[in-house]
Design a binder for these strands. Structure first.
Lengths: 222, 222
DNA sequence: CGGGTTCTTGACTATCTTCAACGAAAGTGG
DNA sequence: CCACTTTCGTTGAAGATAGTCAAGAACCCG
């Protein structure tokens, strides 16, 4: 099922459009559901997310999927290895993207500052992935969910009337594939946190953090 | 137990010695058990492994540990994020290391080729970590062990009399902490592979690959 | 050779997955 | 705009995988 995505025609792949119509575009827009690139594609552009949310995934032959990361504003996605993309990348929430030529990575000139910015972003990504390792390798289901919510609330949450809340545009399956859990376990963990009055769930995609301290405690296994 | 490592005196930390005695050393040697750096240390040097094996780890407050990677010849370790190390790094097998100043990352000059080499190494690390994600998040115990052995045999195995074999200097606990398994599960998986005649275990730290195809099949969940 | 660590094995348990059913939400077409 | 269909989320029951606890064996080091 997932595997077929790769071969399905993608409505106007944004990266193609970029390359063809605008040799050095400022910003570009990508619609929900469209793909920026697939695993194995040669890397021509990196993208800085200006608004919206991206999803970076990797597939196993049998359909198992790992969500590598969610791309939020400020993130830069599309770092090459041996010149190729090593994840798929699609758009979860309509996004504004700033493309950078891959060649900026290869050479300091003509823009050493941009080069350095992309390099620092790559280094930051390494560091961020290591937190993710800890989560995937060592934590229980409830710890994973609590970690996820804590990190997301700090990163992209907003305070409305003094209450910390969080939009989660991704599905429960996405969260599961990000944390190495099944949809059912994600759902049960949410329910558990809700029943203990640590979070509240407004709309399915909106989480309200009622007790951040306890949530953070749970994320560390207390 | 693990946590105390951080505060114990380390016999002559190599990185200190480097900084103090030799402003731009060629190669340096690090003894088994010594630490190159700890999480939170400012990054002054990166190290290219020339021989030996390093271990990069991260700790949780309660002592749970994630082995982030094993550093084999050709690997470059010590990439900073915000100028700091974000793992501990110690020596599993006496190592020869080539230190590079961190400043090589910050500037293209005076050595743009070295700068580019370190950058490419960082990008390669991102890609490698994504395989690790797949393994941690989606694979069963036997798949993890089979993946680990397959990758290691390809990367650092040697063929002796037409037989592929593999030195594993790390403990079963290290392997477990790398794969997100307990020592016992690692041990049982090895035993299972041995009983099915897919591997043979010579000395505890030497694995002989008897049936690479089946091993690789298991690594993908067949 | 002896003491300590590491590895293996067994029995039991817990956690998470699987399978299944149902309800809610969202998308589609008349 | 409403019925229909499909997807997504929740919940329950049962089962499997991996973890825990415990003991003994193998290995390593002085």
């Amino acid at each position: 099922m997932y595997v077929t995505l790769r071969t399905e025609p993608v409505a106007t792949p944004p990266y193609l459009k970029l390359v063809e119509t605008s040799p050095d575009p400022k910003d570009t827009f990508a619609k929900q559901g469209s793909y920026l690139f697939y695993e194995g594609d040669p890397v021509d552009w990196l993208y800085e997310v200006k608004s919206g949310v991206l999803r970076l995934t990797r597939l196993l032959e049998d359909g198992r999927r790992q969500v590598i990361s969610f791309g939020y504003p400020g993130d830069i996605v599309g770092f090459p290895s041996a010149g190729l993309h090593h994840t798929d990348c699609d758009v979860l929430v309509d996004a504004k993207l700033r493309p950078y030529r891959k060649s900026v990575l290869d050479r300091c000139n003509p823009d050493p500052e941009l080069h350095q910015k992309l390099l620092q972003a790559a280094l930051g990504e390494i560091s961020g992935m290591q937190d993710h390792f800890m989560m995937l390798g060592q934590k229980s289901a409830i710890e994973k969910i609590a970690s996820f919510l804590t990190v997301m609330a700090d990163r992209v949450g907003e305070t409305v009337n003094g209450v910390r809340q969080l939009e989660l545009p991704m599905s429960r399956t996405d969260i599961g594939d990000f944390l190495g859990l099944t949809t059912e376990t994600v759902s049960r963990s949410f329910t558990m946190l809700r029943k203990r009055r640590i979070i509240a769930i407004d709309n399915i995609h909106t989480v309200i953090i009622l007790d951040r301290n306890t949530l953070q405690g749970l994320s560390l296994g207390e």
